[in-house]
């Protein structure tokens, strides 16, 4: 499988839903994980979580920056790894 095709396909999969719902305000693009709360309460009206997180990000902005931190930590390790592997592979050729 060609790499550019794989990259293009994953970008297309990201963009298509956004374009499809571009003029439709009913699509909120909220997370499915959060929708479980509503679904559980539809099944069992009186259920409330018996433990709440001891800390949660005080705002959406802080939450998104922490998600960015998570992604950048991962990307950092992967990028370092590929650099290290490329360097090891080319060692002695230079």
């Amino acid at each position: 499988m060609k790499n550019w095709l794989l990259l293009l396909a994953s970008i297309a999969l990201f963009v298509t839903p956004l374009l499809y719902f571009a003029n439709d305000s009913s699509a909120e693009f909220s997370g499915t994980d959060d929708k479980v709360e509503t679904a559980v309460n539809e099944i069992q009206k009186d259920y409330s979580p018996w433990l709440r997180p001891f800390w949660s990000p005080p705002s959406k902005e802080i939450e998104s920056s922490l998600f960015a931190l998570q992604a950048s930590l991962g990307t950092g390790v992967i990028a370092f790894g590929f650099g290290w592997l490329a360097g090891k592979k080319n060692a002695g050729k230079l």
Partner: peptide
């Protein structure tokens, strides 16, 4: 190094909320 990279891949991909055809996001 390869094992660390595989752990890092979980970090990256599970942080990405991707929009879907249902109008919801998931990762």
């Amino acid at each position: 190094m390869l094992l660390a990279m595989m752990g890092a891949l979980v970090f990256v991909l599970s942080a990405l909320k991707i929009p879907s055809v249902t109008g919801s996001c998931s990762h």
